[in-house]
Design a protein around this nucleic acid. Structure first.
Lengths: 215, 215
DNA sequence: TGATTTTTATACTGTTCCGCATAATATAAG
DNA sequence: CTTATATTATGCGGAACAGTATAAAAATCA
């Protein structure tokens, strides 16, 4: 019996705590997603608060109240992007798959992320942020470095596993292979942004995989 | 006797054609270099005409007269960047070197370009432009694609040569290896922008070279 | 019903932006 | 010396910008 009778009285923090004043006209998560879409499309500097206001349906004071100033909104958007990307990848890293299949799936998901977008491919937000804001903003930079490191480590784990299971020769260096895999990610992200068609990006991916798992 | 008497009458286009009106107070090439520095540092959107005016020493009307509007100036700056980068690389591609040495030198020059800059590493302008303006501006995009292609082809030629000279096995695919080399370039360019120290970037380069030329 | 709280809506402020119009300046040509 | 030409220098104009102040609106609580 699934307990859904009445109200769970002994619930520490209920789902709807009944806020006090005028209710919000927006859903923070959805609004943040819209902001992320805009930032991914145009970048930080070329996105105005008016654009963000229009896209989220929130007027400027509400934006400030909910997320802080433009920079804070950008940081929260980037955090959201990372969380989304992580969620899209986590299953593939968990499943037990032969290394080649695993890499194929990782890169396929990456391409889905990079090539999505109504107004053109949105690329990788980590790469775009590295290229623009990361130089001058220490806080943003540390998030970007964390993003690089996270990807490097995930790939390293993949290759280490494959090496241990005998799929790769004992001479294989998981860290080096991971850096190559990350480089391939960065390259297709950048090329995607220049509207290189998916077919060509897939060819790059396939070639890279061949080299990485020995042709 | 070096003919410098009078005026070389039979000279089609002389070195100093003696312009008509008030002489320029700036040197176009130098000013373009300063503009390029600024664009590389902050990107298109975050660089104002006032910034450009201050950096070049030209007032805004002179900027317009010499280079056109901001977008045209950006395009000319990017063309200049490409020409500079090509000039820095051309010798290495001409010299006869073992493939490993050649790659080492190419990546070293690339790192010099990406890590230079008083106000932080300037990265690769092709990559930065791909990430920002290339999506929405067809003319800029085609220049960026040309930049990618140029690098891919140069690397391909290197690997093809090495294969023919027996430095690489007959199974080696020069195009695939070139894409990996380009990917490595893109990756260190992006990481450089996030202030990853040169040592780490060199480690990535060395690992990549090991894999490309067989460890 | 009236007071309190929270959010929305409107509008304002001062700045920065791009592009250009106008006038001053410096050279060559007649 | 005068005229023509090419550049510099100043500054205007209208739009967009980020951030905030103020007031209206919509809910809960007493």
């Amino acid at each position: 019996m699934v307990q859904k009778t009445k109200k769970p009285a002994a619930n520490p923090d209920a789902v709807a705590p009944r806020r006090r004043g005028r209710p919000r006209a927006y859903q923070p998560e959805i609004a943040l997603g819209k902001a992320l879409d805009l930032f991914r499309k145009d970048g930080f500097a070329a996105t105005s608060l008016d654009d963000l206001s229009a896209a989220t349906g929130m007027n400027r004071p509400s934006l400030y109240g909910a997320f802080g100033d433009k920079r804070e909104l950008y940081i929260k958007s980037y955090a959201r992007y990372r969380a989304d990307a992580r969620a899209a990848m986590i299953d593939i890293f968990r499943e037990e798959l032969p290394i080649r299949r695993r890499l194929e799936r990782i890169f396929a998901v990456a391409l889905d992320i990079y090539l999505s977008g109504d107004a053109g491919p949105r690329g990788c937000f980590t790469v775009m942020t590295a290229a623009s804001e990361a130089v001058s903003d220490p806080e943003i930079r540390s998030m970007v470095l964390e993003g690089f490191s996270e990807l490097d480590k995930a790939f390293t784990a993949c290759f280490r596993l494959a090496k241990e299971s005998g799929e790769l020769p004992q001479t294989a260096d998981p860290v080096v292979l991971a850096q190559l895999a990350s480089a391939t990610i960065h390259s297709i992200a950048v090329r995607a942004r220049a509207r290189v068609p998916r077919k060509e990006l897939e060819a790059i991916v396939n070639g890279a995989i061949d080299v990485m798992v020995r042709g």
